[in-house]
Simulated assay, not measured.
Amino acid sequence: MLDALTLVTGVAALLLAAWCGWAAYRDQPTKDWHFIGMAVVSLLALVQLVVGIVQLARGEEPDQGTTIFVAYLLGAFACVP
Results as ranks from 00 to 15, higher is better:
44 L>W: 07
25 Y>R: 06
33 W>N: 06
75 G>H: 13
50 V>E: 02
56 L>C: 03
46 L>C: 01
2 L>G: 08
66 T>L: 07
29 P>Y: 13
12 A>L: 02
43 L>V: 11
75 G>N: 09
18 A>D: 02
7 L>D: 12
39 A>S: 14
18 A>G: 05
47 V>F: 00
3 D>V: 07
40 V>N: 01
2 L>V: 08
12 A>R: 07
71 A>M: 07
30 T>S: 04
67 T>I: 12
45 A>F: 14
11 V>E: 06
78 A>V: 15
41 V>P: 01
66 T>Q: 09
62 P>R: 05
16 L>C: 06
27 D>E: 15
79 C>T: 08
71 A>G: 04
31 K>Y: 13
72 Y>W: 15
17 A>P: 00
3 D>Y: 13
49 L>R: 03
52 G>Y: 13
64 Q>C: 03
63 D>F: 15
48 Q>E: 07
1 M>D: 12
50 V>T: 01
6 T>S: 13
10 G>Q: 09
7 L>C: 04
8 V>W: 13
35 F>Q: 03
14 L>P: 03
71 A>V: 05
35 F>R: 07
30 T>L: 11
78 A>W: 15
32 D>R: 09
45 A>N: 12
59 G>L: 06
19 W>Y: 14
41 V>Y: 14
26 R>I: 09
57 A>K: 05
63 D>A: 10
9 T>D: 02
38 M>L: 09
40 V>I: 12
18 A>Y: 10
80 V>D: 04
68 I>R: 12
52 G>A: 04
74 L>D: 03
21 G>S: 08
64 Q>F: 10
64 Q>A: 10
77 F>V: 07
56 L>A: 02
53 I>S: 01
35 F>V: 06
32 D>Q: 12
9 T>P: 02
72 Y>N: 03
55 Q>D: 08
4 A>T: 12
47 V>Y: 04
67 T>K: 07
68 I>L: 14
9 T>F: 05
25 Y>W: 10
47 V>N: 03
66 T>W: 09
2 L>Y: 12
24 A>K: 06
53 I>F: 05
12 A>Q: 06
66 T>N: 06
80 V>K: 13
33 W>L: 08
4 A>Y: 15
5 L>C: 01
53 I>G: 02
74 L>I: 10
79 C>Q: 08
1 M>L: 10
62 P>S: 04
73 L>A: 01
10 G>D: 05
28 Q>L: 07
53 I>A: 00
8 V>Y: 07
69 F>L: 02
28 Q>F: 11
60 E>A: 01
12 A>Y: 15
62 P>C: 03
11 V>F: 09
19 W>F: 13
47 V>C: 05
55 Q>Y: 13
51 V>N: 01
26 R>P: 01
42 S>K: 15
4 A>F: 15
66 T>D: 05
75 G>Q: 14
45 A>H: 14
22 W>N: 05
6 T>R: 14
2 L>H: 12
61 E>N: 00
69 F>N: 00
58 R>A: 04
8 V>I: 11
55 Q>H: 12
54 V>G: 00
17 A>K: 14
58 R>P: 01
